[in-house]
Design a protein around this nucleic acid. Structure first.
Lengths: 220, 220
DNA sequence: CAATAATTTTTGGTATACCAAGTCTTCACT
DNA sequence: AGTGAAGACTTGGTATACCAAAAATTATTG
């Protein structure tokens, strides 16, 4: 039994399909078709589409089928820029407000990654990586910030997912996470900002290369 | 004739009522009642409520009437923190990307404020002030940033509105806007960040005092 | 054959109806 | 009078039906 509303379930399912690439960008999302597929009426589907629209995953067009958002290169770069800024702020705030439990939690994530980083499945590793950043944002104690951060993290999920798959040197990630954690432990806001900046800047580069490669393939 | 969908019109109307205080925090927003008042069915109203919920103006509760969001003090402070960070980023980016037209537009707003700041109605002045910040975010050339910024600006609308009404020294605002504009013209990203930081920090103080005062009244 | 007008179809927007899960009221029983 | 159970009512969630606008298609005409 699920306590979620139907619309939320549908939103979750559609979100997964979009992020995993089952519904590639540009695909039209027709209320009736989806409804027929999933055996539910248009109403909750409509609502689910609105949810995803606010998350930036689908694009609403007046009197036209919504489509899966096409993330052109600049769009992704822009979103990454915002994400970095939000996470830097999170780190800085977390230096003041993070509890010992918060830090322990982050440490355990880093630990897990470092101990398993050559045996773990890349996809699982990716999920763990995400959880580190989410936990960091949460420990800022600023709910609005954590939520907005989470939204951007989700929008960039696909790009990050693709870039994480092809990345070889995961050791780098562990080291950088450790740096962030150290700054947090030292309660050094500026150091934390710098560590995040450096870490995510590398991410941005990875994403850039993936997007370029993907759009190059699409031209073909 | 309006090109907006009914749901959007309703959302706009409800948003205005909430921000202007006609629907004070805690008021329950019942689909059927609103529908009866405005002579429309529940469907678009339901959708409007979802929109406002994503904007943080109303709070959805499982199996319960949504209520107008209660903005406790920390919540507003947190949102202000995020807004400041977003606007600092906007200013920094704008130093690189703003076109001459963008800067001219901002300059005209500052000009208008400076020339009319003792004759203009406080409310209109407030709207002009808002447009300055919105225009600044837009000239960053980062759509995701501008949209998120706009969301937070809107969430804080009521608090800013209240603080703007009681503020006497609007000259200060004009001066600070001029500083921001100067930094922009000089394409000095750091100076722009600092100018924004200083300007909005004052705003945060104003908001703080208003909220404290309001919640004090509410205790009575 | 081309262009355009008419029509059919598709699709989102809105209204209405029904249902289930709470909430509140009321009334019976101790 | 206090307590609790039953039922009426409120309210959000979902399904279905209808409408209008926009696309796509077909027909018509030069």
């Amino acid at each position: 039994m699920s306590k979620e509303t139907l619309a939320e379930q549908i939103a979750n399912r559609l979100r997964r399909d979009i992020l995993r690439g089952k519904l590639p960008p540009g695909t039209s999302v027709k209320e009736r078709d989806i409804g027929a597929d999933m055996g539910v009426s248009r109403t909750p589907i409509r609502e689910a589409i609105r949810i995803l629209s606010k998350e930036g995953l689908v694009e609403l067009r007046p009197s036209r089928s919504p489509i899966v958002a096409i993330s052109d290169f600049k769009e992704v770069a822009d979103q990454t820029t915002v994400l970095i800024e939000l996470e830097k702020l999170s780190a800085e705030l977390a230096c003041k407000t993070a509890t010992d439990a918060d830090i322990d939690h982050l440490a355990s994530i880093v630990n897990y990654m470092s101990e398993n980083f050559d045996t773990i499945d890349p996809l699982d590793m990716f999920e763990v990586d995400m959880s580190f950043h989410t936990a960091l944002a949460s420990s800022s104690g600023n709910r609005a910030l954590a939520e907005t951060h989470s939204t951007f993290l989700r929008r960039l999920w696909r790009a990050r997912y693709l870039s994480a798959r092809q990345r070889r040197n995961r050791e780098r990630v562990v080291n950088q996470h450790t740096l962030i954690l150290d700054a947090l432990r030292a309660r050094d806001g500026q150091a934390a900002r710098d560590a995040i900046d450096y870490h995510l800047w590398r991410l941005a580069e990875d994403i850039r290369s993936v997007i370029e490669q993907e759009s190059a393939n699409q031209e073909t």
